[in-house]
């Protein structure tokens, strides 16, 4: 029976769904629950990782320091993880304090074609003796060959595992299968997958990844994550159990943790809204959902038009400012046409 290492980024990706408003109290409650369930890695922080609180992406209500300190105290067994994106976070301002706060797992992330910006950060976290994984986001925007090439760079910098993210929820299962296969033959470190559910494929895609040889999967409680949410953790655990994969997670307790998350963490349970379908189809970062809806209201344009235009312009995660430009352009065109 093969083992799958589960990471739970509910307290990081879920922050996108609540405009980065998770409090230390919420973090403490959820950490208690998933630690008891035996979830191996619990990721905490701003939706875009440590150091990402900003006007561009949304300001966190609680500081990285407070969130991590709280999580550390409430995770006696589970490992504490962070996500970091060079270009937003730096070693000195963000990674060093996070490591001092007791983070065990550092996931250093970049847009799928830009792995070389992660070299110093991966190296630093390794030097400090942490477990380090390389992450490539928006991975549907690179061919499988290019993805493998970029992943190899991360391995050469010292990454002990590699995770590719379907940040737009754009993949179908066969897309995931072929990428995992290509990555497995290109890398000597384990491969992982992080799903989004814009096209209703998050669980199916995660299963496809496992079946193709992925050894790490991400899941969040009730799918609590950006846009249409992620692979739903408690469902993923149940499905993997049926398929005969071992996760080491207690089913009843993870179901309890999900119930607690629904009650304590989220304003609404993530759903595939109509706009999220378009976000997935157009291949735009799921985290754009809230700012796109906001800009659509302010500039009186259709949010679906904004998403398709962002997709056409191949905008990457982190370029939230372009939403305003696109919305303002669309509104000028509408006004001009009248």
């Amino acid at each position: 029976m093969r083992s799958i290492l589960i990471s739970d980024p509910s307290l990081r990706d879920g922050n996108h769904a609540v405009q980065h408003s998770l409090t230390v109290k919420q973090v403490a409650a959820y950490c208690d629950a998933v630690d008891a369930a035996g979830v191996p890695i619990v990721e905490v922080g701003h939706g875009n990782g440590i150091g990402a609180s900003s006007l561009q992406l949304g300001e966190s209500s609680a500081t990285d320091g407070d969130l991590l300190k709280t999580a550390r105290e409430h995770l006696p067994h589970s490992k504490l993880g962070v996500h970091m994106i060079p270009g937003f976070a730096t070693i000195e301002k963000d990674l060093k304090p996070a490591i001092e706060a007791g983070v065990d797992v550092v996931r250093v992330a970049a847009h799928c074609t830009e792995a070389d910006i992660t070299e110093r950060h991966i190296g630093y976290a390794r030097e400090k003796g942490r477990t380090v994984y390389g992450v490539l986001m928006m991975s549907h925007m690179a061919s499988k060959e290019m993805l493998a090439e970029e992943a190899q760079k991360m391995e050469s910098y010292g990454a002990e595992g590699f995770i590719f993210m379907d940040s737009s929820g754009h993949y179908l299962p066969e897309d995931v299968t072929e990428r995992v296969k290509t990555l497995r033959s290109a890398l000597s470190v384990p491969v992982g997958f992080h799903a989004h559910n814009n096209l209703g494929m998050a669980i199916a895609n995660s299963v496809a990844a496992a079946d193709a040889g992925a050894e790490m999967l991400d899941g969040t409680a009730r799918g609590f994550g950006a846009g249409a949410g992620n692979a739903q953790l408690e469902v993923l655990i149940a499905v993997l159990e049926r398929l005969g994969y071992k996760t080491g997670i207690d089913l009843y307790k993870v179901l309890d943790a999900a119930d607690l998350a629904e009650k304590e963490l989220m304003k609404v349970v993530p759903t595939i809204s109509s706009v999220s379908v378009v976000s997935g189809l157009s291949g735009v970062f799921s985290g754009f959902l809230k700012p796109v809806v906001r800009a659509a209201q302010q500039f009186k344009v259709d949010p679906r038009d904004i998403f398709f235009e962002l997709g056409r312009r191949k905008i990457v995660a982190g370029q939230e400012d372009i939403i305003i430009e696109v919305a303002s352009d669309l509104s000028k065109k509408l006004t001009g046409a009248r």
Partner: peptide
Amino acid sequence: AKAILNLNPAQPCINMQTTILAK
């Protein structure tokens, strides 16, 4: 103050663009 840098690989290449946000 906060500074953020994004690299975008789109083809054709994007022009450099900078947004200044102030409170």
